[in-house]
Amino acid sequence: MRCLSFVMTALLVVAGGSTRAAEEGPGLSVSVSVEPAPSRPEACLCTAEVKDLETGQLLAVPRLMLPKGEAGKMSVGDPAVFEVLFDITIDRTGAAATYVVTCRRKGRVMGIQKGSLSLRPPA
């Protein structure tokens, strides 16, 4: 299994000596993992963890089973408030995956993270 973790922090805007961090909400820690599915050799299991950076509280754990050679999407949150979108593609051999994680607050993009993972077959 390969896992990549990264941090999407809320933008801090200083205006007139005050920050809008409280109204923007906390930053997020997002980790993405992709592994061959033990029960389905033709597929991979994609899992993400979304945590509140301030408290460490686990907010969501979306999962998606994807056949090798396919792309898929998953999202968590309320698009009117805050949403984290995951676009994941598994290559046809199941040896690699690419992903894009997009964080949106009230429809506005707050951060984008792209990455690629090399996958190992299950032992």
Rank of each mutant, 00 (worst) to 15 (best):
P38S: 07
S31W: 06
S75Q: 14
A71P: 14
S33L: 04
C44W: 01
A21E: 05
V30G: 01
G56Q: 08
M74S: 13
R63H: 08
P62D: 13
A48T: 11
G69C: 11
R20Y: 09
C46W: 06
E70I: 03
D78Q: 14
L58M: 07
C46M: 03
E35L: 10
V13E: 14
K68Y: 14
S31F: 06
G16T: 09
S39M: 11
G16E: 12
S31R: 11
V14D: 15
D78N: 15
K51I: 00
V50A: 00
V34S: 08
P41Q: 10
G77F: 09
M74D: 12
V32L: 00
M65L: 14
P41A: 13
P67V: 02
G25E: 11
A21C: 03
A43S: 15
S75F: 06
Q57V: 01
S33R: 11
L28H: 05
P41D: 06
L12E: 15
E49Q: 14
V14W: 13
T47G: 07
L45Q: 12
A22C: 05
L66K: 11
G72F: 10
R20E: 11
S31Y: 03
C44T: 04
A60E: 12
G72K: 10
A22V: 15
R63M: 05
P36H: 12
E24M: 07
V34H: 07
K51E: 04
G16D: 13
L12V: 07
G69P: 13
M65C: 10
E23V: 14
V34L: 03
G56L: 06
V30K: 02
E49C: 10
R63Q: 15
D52E: 11
V50F: 00
E42W: 00
E42Q: 02
S29N: 07
A43E: 03
K51D: 01
G25W: 04
K68H: 13
K73I: 03
E54P: 01
G56W: 04
V50K: 01
V32S: 00
E70P: 03
E24I: 02
Q57D: 01
A48C: 12
K73H: 10
S33Q: 09
G25K: 06
Q57I: 00
G25D: 09
S33P: 09
G72Y: 12
P36V: 02
V61D: 12
V50P: 02
V30C: 01
E49D: 09
A48G: 13
V14Q: 15
G25L: 07
V34I: 09
E24Q: 04
P36W: 11
M74V: 14
V61S: 14
S31L: 08
Q57G: 00
A43N: 10
L28G: 09
A43V: 03
G17I: 06
T19Y: 05
A22T: 13
G56T: 10
L45F: 06
K68P: 08
D78G: 07
V50E: 00
P41C: 02
V50Y: 01
D52C: 08
G25T: 09
T47E: 15
G56A: 06
E24R: 05
V13W: 08
S39K: 15
P41S: 12
E24H: 02
V14E: 15
L53D: 02
S33F: 00
T55M: 07
P26A: 15
R63K: 13
K51S: 01
A15P: 07
P26V: 10
